[in-house]
Design a protein around this nucleic acid. Structure first.
Length: 280
DNA sequence: CTGGGCTCCTGTCAGC
DNA sequence: TGCTGACAGGAGCCCA
C-alpha cells in the first residue's frame, strides 16, 4: 500500500499525535516481517521525539527519563498493507484481528493495522540515529531533496540493463517510488518502462527526475493514494487516486492521446503505460 | 556485481 | 452459492 507519499502523510499525522508523548507500554500481537523485537527493552516511561522518514521507513526516536539521554527508538515499515492509526485519550475501539502493534502513550493509542503482515517494527535501546543509518545504508537518495538530480540518476544507472521501471522500484537509486508512482512518473516523463535503465540519456534523466519529484509532491499534497484501505493516522483517506493517469487504467484511453493504456508485467509487478506517448 | 524469481500473508474479486 | 485462481501499494533472500 504505502509508497513515499503515504508514508510521509502518515509521518506527519503520527508526529503531530505522538511527538512529546510518554510511552506507557508497547504491545506486540502476531509477528510481523522481522520479528526482531531485539533486546526487549522496556520502552515504558520514555518520551517520543520527532518522527522521521527515510524512504518508506519511519523512525521514532525515544528519549530516556532523567537527563533526556538518547534511548534508541522504534523503526517502522508499513509493508504492503500496513497503516498507523491514532486514537487520542481512551477513544480507541477494541483491538481488531489485524492490529498487530499497540503503542500506548499518555496521550492516546497508536496502532499498526496490517492484514498481510509484510510490515515491520524494530526497536531497541541501541537503535539511535547512527544504527538506523547503518541499517538503511543501502537506500538510494530521497527524491524530494536536492540530492535527487539528473546527474545522480544518470550515474547510478550507468551500465544497468534492468528495465527503468524496475530500477526505480529497487530503491538503491532513489527511495520511495513504488509501483503506482513508478508508472505515473514514467508516463509523465514520456519514457517506455521497458527501456534498459543504462540507456537513458542525460536529458531524459532530467525529465524523469523532474517527473518523480513532481508526482510524489503532488501525491503528498493530495494526502496520498487510497486504492483500498490507506488512511493517515487520523483515519483520513488520500485522494491522489483521482489524479493517476495510467496506473490501474488498462484498456482505458490515454489521457494524452486516447490510445488504450497497456498493462504489462515486469518482475511480477504490473506496469501501466501508453505505448504511443512513452518511447524507448 | 547484476538480474531474475520466489517468498512472506491475508483479503478481494472475477470466472466458472 | 461456492470454489479456485489471480492479483494487490514491499522488499529480502537465494541462485545462476
Amino acid at each position: 500500500m504505502p509508497e513515499l507519499p503515504e508514508v510521509e502523510v502518515t509521518r506527519r499525522t503520527v508526529n503531530e499525535a505522538v511527538a512529546g508523548a510518554r510511552v506507557m507500554a508497547l504491545q506486540m500481537g502476531k509477528p510481523l516481517r522481522w520479528p526482531l523485537g531485539c533486546d526487549p527493552v522496556t520502552v515504558a516511561g520514555q518520551v517520543v521525539g520527532a518522527v522521521q522518514r527515510r524512504g518508506k521507513y519511519l523512525w521514532m526516536p525515544l528519549q530516556g527519563d532523567a537527563a533526556g539521554s538518547p534511548a534508541g527508538g522504534l523503526l517502522w515499515h508499513l509493508g504492503m498493507s500496513g497503516s498507523l492509526g491514532w486514537w487520542p485519550g481512551q477513544s480507541a475501539p477494541a483491538r481488531g484481528v489485524h492490529d498487530h502493534v499497540e503503542l500506548l502513550t499518555d496521550r492516546g493509542l497508536l496502532r499498526l493495522h496490517d492484514p498481510r503482515r509484510f510490515g515491520a517494527l524494530v526497536w531497541g535501546p541501541s537503535l539511535g540515529e547512527g544504527q538506523v543509518a547503518r541499517l538503511l545504508a543501502g537506500l538510494g537518495v530521497e527524491p524530494l531533496t536536492e540530492a535527487w538530480t539528473a546527474q545522480h540518476l544518470h550515474r547510478a544507472l550507468m551500465g544497468r540493463r534492468v528495465a527503468i521501471k524496475q530500477a526505480l522500484l529497487a530503491g538503491d537509486v532513489v527511495v520511495g517510488v513504488g509501483n503506482i508512482y513508478a508508472s505515473e512518473a514514467l508516463f509523465r516523463a514520456g519514457i517506455d518502462p521497458r527501456l534498459a535503465a543504462g540507456k537513458l540519456s542525460k536529458p531524459r534523466c532530467e525529465r524523469l527526475v523532474h517527473a518523480v519529484r513532481e508526482v510524489l509532491a503532488e501525491a503528498v499534497a493530495a494526502g496520498g493514494t487510497t486504492l483500498r484501505d490507506f488512511r493517515n493516522a487520523l483515519g483520513q483517506q488520500g485522494h491522489f487516486q483521482q489524479a493517476t493517469r495510467v496506473y490501474d487504467r488498462a484498456g482505458l484511453p490515454c489521457v494524452a492521446c486516447g490510445q488504450p493504456v497497456r498493462r504489462i508485467v515486469q518482475g511480477q509487478r504490473a506496469t501501466y503505460f501508453c505505448a504511443t506517448c512513452q518511447r524507448r
